[in-house]
Nucleic acid binder design. Structure first.
Lengths: 278, 278
DNA sequence: GAGTATGTGCGAATGGTGTTCGCGAATCAA
DNA sequence: TTGATTCGCGAACACCATTCGCACATACTC
């Protein structure tokens, strides 16, 4: 009586109580319909974000676009921020998929319109090539989806904090892991020079180990990966948010490439001609 | 007749036509009052931003805070975005002042509450110390003013583009220049190693020279400075926007320090014990 | 001084927003 | 069929940015 009938969390449907009888994966007709309209809702919201940006997203207008009443939206979404949270989670996965493609892996969820990735480096390419590929893919996604990038990496939704084990956190781990993969491979092949500053003792004490990323990773490497991500992210962030537009009217890709090249050199990944086959 | 009487741009007062007679700097009583209330308005808006963040800033509530009617606000501000633009310009200057303090320079505008800067490195300190000082000051300001950082460096106001010679652009140049100063000094002292990747020919062609920063700077150095800024900015950005909060519950300063140390080493700034006196 | 233009502030009004509530219709489990 | 649950919606509330016309105070001109 106290709570409303509808349950935005989506898992409160009676079908959930399929205790034994209809145990097959075939969820009820209602569940499927619900999932479908929710997907449509997210798609509409994503279009809206792509057009006007996250801060200007109007719940009423995504309702219009999805052919629904504004009130009806609340059967599927907790609030405006809740909808944005859903988009954020999807956005993380989208980035991760892109990076996976650049690494020559199949994307987890089939991309309906697979966009062009500047460089694809398969498993047999050298670490320098693979590192460059993911780094460029990171920037390419950001430049191609500036508003989604802003949604994910920009000013966070005021009250929002990612639940430690929630979907956004795991999806972000996917991004970090993809960026880290070439370096980890190089490390395991014994072809990586880690800056000595990463071994500072107070540093080791400050970081909370992230088991999900790679269980038994030396912490110097782990910390190096974090700084590396930040380094790449900073260039992309400054570009996408327009702080370099007046310096590079045609885009910052050359600057970014140069920085990645310097990074690859510093890490010792570019030995000789970077011959393939590990 | 077409335009309203009030002029939000602020310089339309009749006193501007002080042709000869009252040529002294004593602007009329009205001008001063106007300037004062505008400052109060900006202060109120800044408090509001600090509390609820830029995207949640409500014009009505800054009007309340400033003891004014919402409509009256429009005599001083073009629109909500216009007010945010003013805050952005001030924010840039605030960062620049902080960095100047860290470099041992006097801040341009007297800070009413001079906050603690983690490390002040005067003119006679070595480039490694000075570099570390500005870098730490950059992070310290961001961590102390997260909402203003988001306002300046986060998702930009949808339609806003910084006018090429406008106040925000010049203020941003101040920030860039402060961050660059130690490196430039090291370069002039012949103590700087520039990564060879910065000399790529297509890179040189892509960047538009920024005369304001430093007229006759070799472009490799110029580009190095840009990547350096991005590198620092990325770490700070990830931290302030909360993407590292689950990894570093007590703040990312150790990680940041390590990255700065690595950067200093790579640039060759830390020769021996970094003896002072150039 | 008076007269007049101009800046200043405000109340009211408009159209947009997020969100809640109650009700009818559709769907499901029995 | 019966009863319970979900879906979707219209109406409503409170808040928002912005505009307009009007009253007042100030400044300049004569």
């Amino acid at each position: 009586m106290g709570a409303r009938a509808g349950d935005p969390s989506g898992e409160g449907t009676g079908g959930d109580a399929a205790t034994g009888s209809t145990d097959t994966g075939h969820l009820g007709r209602r569940q499927r319909s619900r999932r479908r309209t929710l997907a449509g809702l997210k798609a509409a919201a994503l279009e809206e974000v792509r057009e006007v940006g996250a801060p200007a997203l109007a719940l009423r207008s995504v309702a219009r676009r999805a052919g629904m009443s504004p009130a009806g939206l609340y059967r599927y979404v907790e609030s405006r921020d809740g909808l944005l949270t859903l988009l954020i989670a999807d956005g993380y996965d989208d980035v991760a998929d892109h990076l996976d493609v650049a690494l020559g892996r199949p994307a987890a969820q089939a991309a309906d319109a697979p966009p062009t990735v500047p460089l694809i480096a398969g498993q047999d390419a050298g670490p320098a090539t693979r590192m460059t590929a993911v780094a460029l893919a990171y920037r390419a996604w950001a430049v191609d989806h500036p508003h989604e990038f802003g949604l994910i990496f920009g000013d966070p939704v005021p009250g929002y904090v990612a639940p430690p084990q929630g979907p956004t956190t795991t999806a972000m781990s996917r991004v970090g892991l993809a960026l880290a993969t070439p370096v980890i491979e190089a490390f395991e092949a014994g072809r990586l020079t880690i800056p000595p500053a990463m071994a500072a003792t107070d540093l080791q004490a400050a970081v909370r180990p992230m088991e999900a990323l790679a269980p038994d990773l030396p912490s110097e490497l782990y910390l190096l990966l974090l700084t590396m991500w930040g380094r790449l992210h900073g260039q992309v962030s400054l570009e996408v948010f327009g702080h370099h537009a007046w310096l590079f009217p045609d885009g910052c890709e050359p600057l970014y490439r140069a920085d990645v090249a310097a990074l690859v050199t510093e890490l010792g990944l570019a030995v000789a001609v970077d011959q393939p086959g590990r």
